[in-house]
């Protein structure tokens, strides 16, 4: 430390550690918990630039003697300290519940066909399996024409989401849709009817099998009464988290 500027040294350390943390997120695949994969390119360039900015500090560490550690350094280190305390994972149920059901009950989140391909066609005797790949397309198809799917067997993996506005046997089998970053993630999914829902914990991943049905609801978007799809659950089993917890449009 002697002869060096503590502020300049700490700023260099912060930049280099931030670049290293970003490299780790890239390497471990945990970056997907924070941002949409399409931002990876821009972030890779940013990581290289941050490392470079840290590196060039070596040339003028001794010229900035009066530059001392301040609250600004603490601010820049805050993300690193918080990330070390709370390792990356999907948003907690407490925070998801603050976002509310806005994206679920009107299917708004998933009515943009240009963001996904057409819904897959399942043969009449075939179970409809809603996966990460077809999630957005299936949500749109189910919300657009719920009567086409009434009585069909369905299987879907999602996390348990409850809301005080739902009935005592109802819950949402949900996924989080990330448009850009975790802060804009919205809850999307299907309403499920299951008398034993009380045993479930918010955020718990479950594999649901059941039959598709429809029920009328007041569509606040169009001020009309429409039918919405839901699952009459026949079996439900706790399941490990999927490899990709978010849905990326």
């Amino acid at each position: 430390m002697r002869g060096l500027s503590s502020g300049a040294f700490m700023w260099m350390l912060t930049l280099l550690l931030s670049a290293a943390a970003l490299c780790y997120l890239f390497w471990s695949g945990q970056l997907a918990f924070y941002v949409h994969p399409r931002i990876r390119g821009a972030l890779a360039v940013a990581t290289a630039l941050i490392a470079l900015l840290g590196g060039v500090s070596l040339w003028d560490l001794r010229q900035r003697a009066g530059f001392r550690v301040s609250w600004v350094h603490a601010l820049f280190l805050m993300p690193l300290i918080l990330a070390l305390c709370c390792p990356p994972q999907m948003l907690s149920p407490e925070v998801i519940s603050q976002k509310g059901l806005m994206g679920v009950l009107r299917g708004h989140i998933n009515t943009c066909a240009s963001l996904h391909g057409p819904a897959p066609v399942f043969a009449p005797e075939q179970t409809i399996i809603i996966s990460e790949e077809n999630f957005l397309a299936m949500m749109e198809a189910l919300w657009e024409e719920p009567d086409q799917y009434v009585g069909r067997e369905v299987e879907m993996l999602g996390f348990y989401y409850e809301d005080p506005t739902l009935g005592p046997d109802d819950f949402v089998l949900a996924r989080l849709v990330m448009t850009c970053c975790a802060a804009d993630a919205e809850v999307a999914g299907l309403l499920c009817r299951y008398p034993g829902r009380g045993q479930l914990v918010p955020g718990q991943w479950v594999l649901v099998r059941g039959r598709l049905a429809q029920m009328p609801y007041y569509n606040v978007a169009h001020h009309t009464v429409n039918n919405m799809p839901y699952i009459e659950v026949t079996s439900l089993s706790p399941s490990p988290k999927p490899a990709q917890e978010y849905i990326y449009p």
Binding site: I39, A46, C85
Partner: peptide, 20 residues
């Protein structure tokens, strides 16, 4: 801890999205 975890994830995600 759930609130802190959610806050941390959203906080860092906004930073990562904006930093480039």
């Amino acid at each position: 801890s759930g609130y802190l975890q959610g806050f941390t994830m959203m906080f860092i995600s906004i930073l990562l999205e904006a930093v480039p």
